[in-house]
Every structure is written in structure tokens, then in C-alpha cells.
Amino acid sequence: MTVNSDQLARQIRVLALQMVHRARASHIASALSIADILAVLYGGAMRFSPTEPHAADRDRFILSKGHACVAVYAALAARGVIPLEALDSYGQDLSPLMNHISHKVTGVEFSTGSLGHGLPFGVGKALAAKRRHEDWRTFVQLSDGEMDEGSNWEALMFAAHHKLDNLVAIIDYNKLQSMTTIARTLALEPLADKLRAFGWAVREADGHDHQALSALLCSTPWEPGKPSIVIAHTTKGKGVSFMENKVEWHYRSPNDEQLRLALAELEHDNA
């Protein structure tokens, strides 16, 4: 089934905004930052069937930046894995749709929320596939801020050593972390050089350019024997002008008027 990834990305943004508004939740800017990456993955780059979300040969997707979960819940609903109405319960008492990604939601592989857990877990999945000679891939969505975590660098080293070329990591490099910029907090640069030095095949792309992302994510491994990592240059809050590149939208929840303005911007972009 062909999916228009532009429409999917827009739907992810709309649903994500509506969820955080309804639940008065945080982290909308982090979700908007990866909406295009998810649209490309769930729109065709991953081997994925909405009617068989647990198929043995599916590609696995791990959201390591679990706070951006609304983008994944939205993608799963937009693709029909979970009903759209299920999103209404996001953040409500006893809902499986928790404010950090939850494996209790159909189609979600792994719960995170504490950073630095997704890549080691994905490494285990990729190693399992290699050892059993299975051909599915594992995708791990990382944030830039979480690259502060030592566990990620342990996993980077391990994956390269074990030649896990069925593993694909994507860094959402929006240059902002919880308090301020990456550069002011704990500098990551030269990031690409570091990742290459760790033995990964590294590509950089505009994290909102579907064509570029699709070309990369559909063609791994780029270098046989090496795990692949996309440094996706993104804009935190992408798609809603007053949220873009603003640290405060890591925390704030849109009020009624802000939601209306945000949805209007997305509608305008769609016209």
C-alpha cells in the first residue's frame, strides 16, 4: 500500500498537537521534530503491515526518546494499527497511552522514558536477527540530547564490533536539549566524525526532507558490515512557527488559542 508521507507527517503533527493539548502534556516540540522521520518510516521505508503489527519478519522500531511518544501513537493511529479514538485516552488515568512511549500500546516494541536505553535494546534485537539469519532490520530513533548518555556509546561500540549492519539509528539533531542548546550543555561536535570513528556508516540529511530520508532509510546497509546512522538535522517544533527552536515548548502545552493557531498553520501548509 502506498502512503503519501507528506499527508502522514501532517496527520502525525495534527494528532500529536491535539493529544498534548487535551492532556495538557509536555514535549510537543520533540514530537514535531521527528514527525517527518516517522512519516517516512511508517509510510514505506520500514517493512510494516498495519494489519499484522507483530509479524515475525517486520522491521522493528524503537523510540529511545520516549517523551516524543505522541508522534508514534499518532503514526500508529494514522496507519490503522490502533483506532484513532484510542488517542483520546492519551495521558488519562490508567490509559495504556502513557506520556512516555509504552509497550502496552499495540505496535510499540519497547517502553522508554529514561534516555540511553533504546540503542542497547535495539542492538540486542539486531544481534538476535543476525544470529538467527533473519533479514528484518531494527530502527532506533535517538535524540541529540540523549547522546550525553554513556550507554549509547557502549552500544555504538558494540554494534560496530559485531558488524550489525541490520541496525539503523537516527539522531534527531535539532540542537536543543532540555535546558538550552546542545552546544552550551555538552558539545556533541564533531558528531559525524565521532560516529565514523566508532565504526558506523554515517550519513547526514535534512530531517524534514522526505525524499532524502526515504532514499537513505530504504537503502541500508550503506556499507556492508557496518551499522548505519542518520544524523537528521531537524528543527525542534517543526511545522508550528511559534514553537520552532523554542526551548520552552519542550515543556509547555498549547492552550485553546495556540492549538487553533497551530492547526491553522498546518492546514495552510497543506493547501
Binding site: 516494541e109 519497547f110 535494546f121 544481534l127 557502549e154 552500544a155
Partner: peptide, 19 residues
């Protein structure tokens, strides 16, 4: 897994999730 216990336990969980 080498001297890297966080990755060791995470990858153990990943392998366990695959049976």
C-alpha cells in the same frame, strides 16, 4: 559484551524480546 554493563543488560533484554 565487554566492560560495558549498561549495554550488556540492554542488549540482553533486546535478545530476550526476540525469544
Amino acid at each position: 559484551a565487554g566492560v560495558a554493563e549498561q549495554n550488556m543488560m540492554g542488549l540482553a533484554a533486546g535478545m530476550a524480546s526476540e525469544g
